[in-house]
């Protein structure tokens, strides 16, 4: 016989739902949200949509160059950042780091990288090396290190330490212990994280273009500023298709890994 079902904790549920509702209303008030204004202005939105249709397919050939630039930026960011993420992750893994001070410094470095958004890095590098795809590639490199190192160091912390010990016992040094004993055990996860970072980078490099870091985002911004909305629609469609294709490929590789 199944015992009688215990009654749900109603006060808790009411409390949680009430709290979320109160927070949302409070925030909407804070940003000056008004339902009546939205209803009045929605007509402007429909006019924009009308102007944006149909997409200007004649513009498509001129998108190939900037689109490839976006992909290049993402590739450089993923490959360079992916490689740099390995030492950052190893030093931040408690079981592998050579000593506590190194661990502490590296872990905080990693956290700072992760806290600062990719747009910040894009603007920083744009100031340093000028507006363009190089700044975008540098920004995504840092962004990739931030994304991969955290996930990867956690994978490394959960490996079986027997193998690294065996490498030590055979007279291997610290680097050899890492290379032969630790990294192979988290290899699959690493590849999976790198592909994930590549997907993020494709999307991020579109956004970075908006602030002048090259690629398809830059051309999107110029066309928008010129009120060429039919071209803007075309660009958005092209980005959508490209991102979907890349994510599909990356996803199928990742599935095959496990």
């Amino acid at each position: 016989m199944i015992p009688a079902r215990p009654s749900p904790n109603w006060p808790l549920w009411i409390g949680v739902v009430g709290f979320l509702a109160a927070m949302t209303v409070w925030s909407a008030y804070g940003i000056g949200f008004s339902a009546s204004e939205l209803a009045c202005n929605i007509a402007g939105g429909t006019r924009l949509l009308e102007e944006s249709w149909p997409p200007d397919f004649g513009f498509l050939p001129r998108l190939a160059g900037p689109m490839m630039e976006t992909v290049y930026i993402a590739i450089i960011g993923t490959v360079v950042g992916g490689i740099l993420a390995i030492p950052v992750a190893v030093l931040a893994a408690r079981n592998l780091t050579p000593n506590r001070p190194t661990w502490f410094v590296d872990r905080n470095f990693m956290n700072i990288l992760r806290t600062l958004p990719d747009l910040f890095w894009a603007m920083l590098f744009a100031t340093a090396v000028g507006f363009g795809p190089v700044a975008g590639a540098l920004a995504l490199t840092v962004f990739t290190v931030a994304v991969i190192s955290k996930l990867y160091s956690e994978s490394l912390e959960s490996i079986d330490m027997g193998l690294p010990e065996a490498i030590r016992a055979a007279g291997g040094n610290w680097l050899q212990m890492i290379q032969f004993g630790a990294l192979p055990q988290a290899m699959q996860q690493y590849v999976s994280y790198a592909l994930y970072a590549f997907e993020l980078n494709i999307r991020a490099s579109v956004v970075l273009g908006l602030v002048g870091a090259g690629g398809i985002g830059m051309i999107l911004e110029t066309q928008r500023a010129n009120f060429e909305y039919e071209r803007v629609t075309m660009i958005i469609l092209a980005v959508l298709v490209a991102v979907l294709i890349i994510e599909e490929i990356s996803e199928s590789i990742r599935k095959r890994l496990t």
Partner: peptide, 17 residues
């Protein structure tokens, strides 16, 4: 490391890559 170089070790759980 110099001493370990001359001592081989075999484990219950093999510990291979």
């Amino acid at each position: 490391r110099r001493v370990r170089k001359n001592i081989g070790m075999i484990f219950q759980d093999f510990r291979l890559v």
